[in-house]
Nucleic acid binder design. Structure first.
Length: 403
DNA sequence: AGTCCACAGGAAGGGCAGGCGA
DNA sequence: TCGCCTGCCCTTCCTGTGGACT
């Protein structure tokens, strides 16, 4: 390559109009100025929360809806608008947001309380204190405030499934333990049947109001994407059909707006990388498999060695074909792999739990079957495409030092 | 109808790392 | 330093179970 051509590449790069103006507009953390297709939910939530402006405690609210249906966005949007209105009128009002799915942050009772206390300005160490002490610190931190405090607890079902509903029971009684503030809760959950398993007292007092968020349809997704892509991309850099394709793909996945935005963002990144003039439909196709692949490979990377060995056993037995295997065989294979890589095998009981975890992560599918006289066991298959299978296999092999 | 397989999955508790207060 | 507390990962022990076989 001559020096002139290199210079040309640089100058092309500098003079060419970039695809993106503001990539952040396509991320989930971005809060847009308005939230389309959620007017009803916004006004419902706003009217539930308005007592704040009269210095009164609003009802507790439970919000349900599938992933990417705008629950978190709407809640944060309404809360911040309310905060603006409260500030204008000199009314003390605080919002505390926490997501219970954040590993090692708020996925246990202790961690949630410690995290909330930290957000309220009272430091609590990540471990080491008795729980009642943490409750005391939390109440203390709360009582130093004035007016109304609203806790937004996102993915609350994940937490309660893990720690039980006693925590929520304590929350329902919180207003008896503090003097200076009035406290309300907004619980956000993907699981519609979540409150059915709750203690009746907890259910009635925590879900004084309920809001349901339906999934977006393809047309609604299209409008959301158009709005965001106008913010994110330079004019004329997105080909016709790209947005509707992203919307259609995401609509198939239960109207998940988050996925639609991911697809568009990744398609843009892929187009940028190959120096394309604009984002085209082929980039969306490539983005679709990349989004899935990245999610799965990243999830597997974070797993401990034991889980990887179990997953490898399943992959080995099914060989990526549409074949399934049985839990007993997986355990035998896993023990064999452990011997090869010098790992102490876990018990069958623990392996059974890890198989369930892999199932929840969406990497495998498993169902309990009975073979009558020959016992009851789990039938396990892979839940990933052939392309991802190959990539995952290569990753695991290199991780274990196999060739 | 009763038996029996090969597990699933609940309950209890052990061992460990790590923080706090005395 | 010690005793006590926590979460986390794991084992041990146990009961439950769908359906083929007798």
């Amino acid at each position: 390559m001559t020096q002139t051509t290199i210079q040309q590449i640089f100058s092309n790069y500098m003079t060419k109009q970039p695809l993106f103006i503001n990539k952040k507009a396509l991320t989930t953390s971005y809060t847009p100025e308005n939230v389309p297709h959620r007017d009803e939910q916004i006004s419902q939530l706003a009217s539930i929360l308005t007592p704040v402006l009269k210095r009164e405690r609003p009802s507790n609210v439970f919000i349900y809806g599938p992933t990417g249906s705008g629950k978190t966005l709407v809640t944060q949007y309404v809360a911040s608008e309310l905060k603006g209105a409260a500030e204008k009128n000199g009314i003390p009002f605080h919002i505390v947001y926490v997501n219970c799915k954040m590993k090692r942050v708020a996925d246990t009772e202790y961690r949630l309380l410690a995290h909330l206390s930290n957000l309220l300005g009272k430091e609590v160490p990540p471990t080491g204190l008795p729980t009642d002490q943490v409750y005391k610190t939390f109440f203390g931190a709360l009582d130093e405030r004035e007016g109304v405090v609203i806790f937004i607890i996102d993915e609350i079902d994940a937490l309660i499934k893990k720690v039980g509903d006693e925590l929520l029971y304590n929350f329902t009684r919180i207003n008896q333990d503090v003097k200076n503030v009035k406290v309300s809760f907004i619980g956000i959950s993907n699981d519609l049947g979540f409150t059915e398993n709750l203690d009746a007292r907890v259910r009635s007092s925590l879900s004084e109001e309920e809001l349901i968020f339906p999934p977006y349809n393809a047309l609604q997704l299209q409008r959301i994407l158009t709005e965001r892509s106008n913010l994110a991309f330079n004019k004329g850099k997105v080909a016709d059909g790209v947005i509707s394709k992203c919307a259609a793909l995401a609509a198939q996945e239960h109207g998940d707006a988050r996925r639609a935005l991911d697809l568009l963002r990744v398609a843009g990144e892929l187009a940028e990388r190959e120096n394309a003039q604009m984002v085209e439909e082929k980039h969306v196709d490539a983005a679709e498999s990349k989004v899935d692949m990245d999610r799965i490979i990243e999830t597997v990377k974070m797993q401990p060695k034991q889980s990887k060995a179990i997953l490898y056993s399943i992959i080995y037995l099914t060989r990526g074909e549409e074949k399934t295997c049985l839990s007993g065989d997986v355990y035998d294979e896993y023990v064999r792999i452990c011997k090869i890589i010098g790992l102490k095998p876990l018990t069958q009981r623990r392996v059974s739990d890890i198989i369930s975890e892999l199932d929840i992560m969406g990497i495998i599918t498993s169902k309990v079957i009975s073979k009558g006289r020959y016992g009851r066991m789990r039938d396990i298959g892979l839940a990933i495409s052939a392309e991802i299978y190959q990539k995952l296999l290569n990753f695991l092999k290199s991780d274990f030092g196999f060739d």
